[in-house]
Amino acid sequence: MGRYEQNAKRYEKWRKEGRGSGTGAAYLPWLNVYDVPSQGRSHRVFSKKCGRVLHCMSDLEFSAYLLLEWSEHVTDIREQYPLAMPQTQFIANSLGFRHPQVRGEQMVMTTDFLVNTNNPNAPLLALQVKPSSELLKARVCQKLLIEKSFWEDNNVPFEVLTELELNTVKTENLRWLSPFFNEVVMIEHMPETLSFWEDIFSQNPNSKMVTLASEIDRQQNNESGRSLYTLRVLLAHKYLTFDFDIPFFEVLASEVSVLPCGHFLCA
């Protein structure tokens, strides 16, 4: 448990390392998955959008990350973002709450995600991710009020995200595609590839997308899963798309849209 200790000496070391500073690929989270006790599964995942590995402390945080990574409106994600302790201490005192501490040591509070967007009216958004059951705990609510006040004082919108706000089907679809977010695609072959799938979908509108992939492998004597692999890559890079409110295994060929290849070649 020694590695999980937080104290002034460790905080000074982390500041010298540059934790909690930078943007994009240069950002270093204040906490990483090795610094805190596990609460379920933690995730270290490379974000193409940020150009670095992100640290998610739970499955719920990973689900939130997937939605942020997929969004066209999000331009950068900074996880485990530290809040200035003098300000959170002042807020806690003003509210009459005990400031978070560990073994008597004042603790740096963090926000799970500080998100940059391309919305000029709301360029930043602070997100705290919590299981809904945690919101029934008085002490958790106190900490959230301190955090909310911190971001309000800094004119940044603050939201608490629970599993109840997540679209479960969309999240599962993104989990299915996420291993392929960083897969390399061959742009020069894309027109032929998209034309092939567009023909397949138009000829078999009532077949399920995943079933069609298996059938193509059988007809062409491909290695099992090859066509489904291709589909997942194309979907992960948004060359193909479907309504993410539909589970991927239920999607019909007629419900898959093939986006114009020129859109990507000129992007």
Score class of each variant (00 low, 15 high):
residue 260 P to S: 13
residue 7 N to K: 12
residue 36 V to N: 02
residue 98 R to M: 10
residue 159 E to D: 06
residue 208 K to L: 14
residue 27 Y to C: 07
residue 259 L to A: 11
residue 261 C to Y: 12
residue 47 S to H: 08
residue 16 K to P: 03
residue 172 E to R: 07
residue 60 L to Q: 01
residue 98 R to V: 12
residue 214 S to H: 10
residue 82 P to H: 05
residue 112 D to K: 09
residue 74 V to R: 06
residue 14 W to H: 06
residue 196 F to I: 05
residue 57 M to D: 12
residue 52 R to S: 02
residue 261 C to K: 10
residue 61 E to H: 03
residue 117 T to P: 04
residue 79 E to H: 06
residue 130 K to G: 03
residue 171 T to H: 09
residue 33 V to R: 14
residue 198 E to C: 07
residue 27 Y to A: 03
residue 46 F to A: 03
residue 132 S to N: 07
residue 106 Q to E: 14
residue 76 D to H: 07
residue 267 A to F: 10
residue 65 Y to Q: 06
residue 105 E to K: 12
residue 253 A to W: 03
residue 86 P to W: 06
residue 40 G to N: 06
residue 21 S to E: 15
residue 139 R to G: 00
residue 74 V to W: 02
residue 189 H to W: 03
residue 31 L to H: 14
residue 9 K to T: 12
residue 136 L to Q: 08
residue 153 D to E: 09
residue 209 M to K: 01
residue 68 L to V: 04
residue 230 T to K: 15
residue 214 S to L: 09
residue 178 S to A: 12
residue 168 T to M: 12
residue 155 N to K: 09
residue 152 E to G: 03
residue 160 V to C: 01
residue 212 L to C: 10
residue 51 G to Q: 04
residue 110 T to S: 02
residue 45 V to M: 01
residue 142 Q to E: 14
residue 33 V to F: 05
residue 170 K to I: 00
residue 9 K to C: 10
residue 54 L to M: 14
residue 254 S to R: 15
residue 184 V to K: 15
residue 198 E to M: 04
residue 262 G to Q: 14
residue 58 S to D: 01
residue 88 T to H: 08
residue 185 V to H: 14
residue 102 V to M: 14
residue 103 R to V: 04
residue 208 K to P: 03
residue 208 K to T: 09
residue 113 F to I: 04
residue 120 P to Y: 06
residue 87 Q to T: 15
residue 130 K to R: 14
residue 130 K to M: 11
residue 117 T to Q: 10
residue 112 D to H: 10
residue 262 G to T: 10
residue 160 V to H: 00
residue 187 I to K: 15
residue 34 Y to C: 03
residue 259 L to C: 11
residue 110 T to R: 02
residue 252 L to E: 08
residue 164 L to V: 08
residue 93 N to Y: 02
residue 24 G to Q: 09
residue 145 L to Q: 13
